[in-house]
Amino acid sequence: MSKNLVGNHIRKLRFNHDEMTQQQLADKVGVTRQTIVALEKGNYSPSLELAFRIAHTFNLPLEEIFYYGENTKQ
């Protein structure tokens, strides 16, 4: 399987937002907890729509949540 090059800071952002649980985030963006787990592990690149919903939840622009390639990982 090809390596997923789209990374994210969702885990860190959840903790910065009153230690939001995976289930709470999942409910807010309309997916299952399994999908949030897969996103945090880097096992899944979300659709553009889901990426925007996550960005709206954290009230941040997309590029502050998602990054492309390992070099840009903070």
Binding site: G30, V31, T32, R33, Q34, T35, A38, Y44, P46, S47, L50
Partner: peptide, 9 residues
């Protein structure tokens, strides 16, 4: 159990 299938499912 999840009651719906999302995009990953």
């Amino acid at each position: 159990e999840p009651t719906f299938a999302d995009e990953l499912d």
